[in-house]
Computed example of a mutant assay.
Amino acid sequence: MEIFPAVDILGGRCVQLVQGKRETAQAYGPPLSSALRWIDEGATALHIINLDGAFGNAGANAEIIRELISETDVFIQLGGGIRSEKDAAGWLDIGIDRVIIGTAATEDPDVISRLADEHGSDRIMAGVDARNGEIAIHGWEKTAGDVAIWAARFEQKGAGSLLFTNVDVEGLCKGIAVDPIRRVIGSVKIPVVVSGGVSSLSDVRSLQKLGAAGAVLGSALYSGILSLPAVIEDMV
């Protein structure tokens, strides 16, 4: 199972939010500094979210993200504000390994098919963000139906992987909610990376047992509740 330290960017800073709420932002300095720290501690992949993009300013933080691409040599998946094929293609063309398509995929699921045909399905990840078992869109402000149904639909449209984020527990550092993860993983055959609530070695082990392909570590990592080297060592 791959571990993805999160590098969430808001207003040019690396931050962590609680349940996606801007007003809860806790800042952790320059995004590149955080990225290099996690790489130094053993990370082989990064999960970068352009929070300004998710909140409606898709062009924000572009230079910072380009810097992250040029100054690191690990696998990078990027989400936040990717609302069109042009947005996705632009990031893929400059070196992002995999883009996460969320709201755009619910509004036009065929965008996944077109991007997968053009760039390869392995570079297209569909975002399945859940609130109370329904997919959450537009910066987690609206819901649009059962997450398991959407997960299967995204797979059918050609997504090479899914990012499942449980908004209900995201940023709380109180552990994962197993049932929705099991439902989503059980509804598809493609890899599912899980985000939200991962805050102990027990959570990481549970995700391995559930068959998750990866885990995103955010607030628990930044607050020191989880140690990246300890997580990596435990998985060996």
Rank of each mutant, 00 (worst) to 15 (best):
S200F: 00
P191Y: 05
Q77G: 09
S113I: 02
M235G: 02
L51I: 14
D203F: 03
C14I: 13
A126M: 03
R114M: 03
L207D: 02
T103D: 00
A62K: 08
S200I: 02
R183E: 15
G158N: 03
K86F: 13
A60R: 05
T106A: 08
V193L: 12
G171K: 02
A177E: 09
G56P: 00
G81Y: 12
I149F: 06
E23S: 11
C173W: 00
A43V: 07
I124E: 10
G53K: 07
A230E: 15
G80V: 12
S227H: 01
R66I: 12
I112G: 08
N166D: 15
S187F: 07
L162W: 12
K209H: 06
E107N: 10
V184S: 14
R37M: 11
M1F: 05
E63M: 11
A213V: 12
G56N: 07
R183Q: 14
N61K: 12
I96N: 03
R123F: 12
A159N: 06
M125W: 09
A35D: 07
M235R: 08
A104K: 10
E67T: 15
A151R: 10
L162Q: 11
A88P: 04
P229Q: 05
M1K: 02
A220E: 03
V188F: 05
G79Q: 07
I3W: 15
A58K: 13
P191H: 09
T44H: 09
Q16T: 14
L68C: 08
I124W: 05
D122G: 01
D110G: 10
A89K: 14
A45I: 09
L10Q: 11
L162M: 11
E170T: 00
A230G: 05
E233L: 04
T24G: 03
L92C: 07
V128S: 06
V194C: 06
K86N: 11
S202G: 14
D179M: 15
G81M: 05
W91F: 08
T165Y: 08
L162V: 14
D179G: 08
N61Q: 10
R153T: 14
T143E: 06
E85Y: 01
M235K: 02
H138L: 12
G81E: 09
D179F: 14
G160C: 02
D93N: 13
D73Q: 13
I190V: 15
G11D: 11
S202Q: 14
G214H: 10
I100Q: 03
V128Q: 12
I124K: 14
E41M: 12
I137G: 07
N61T: 13
W150K: 05
D168T: 01
F75E: 06
S223C: 04
G81P: 01
E2Q: 13
S70Q: 12
K174W: 00
V167G: 05
I137S: 09
T143D: 06
V198N: 03
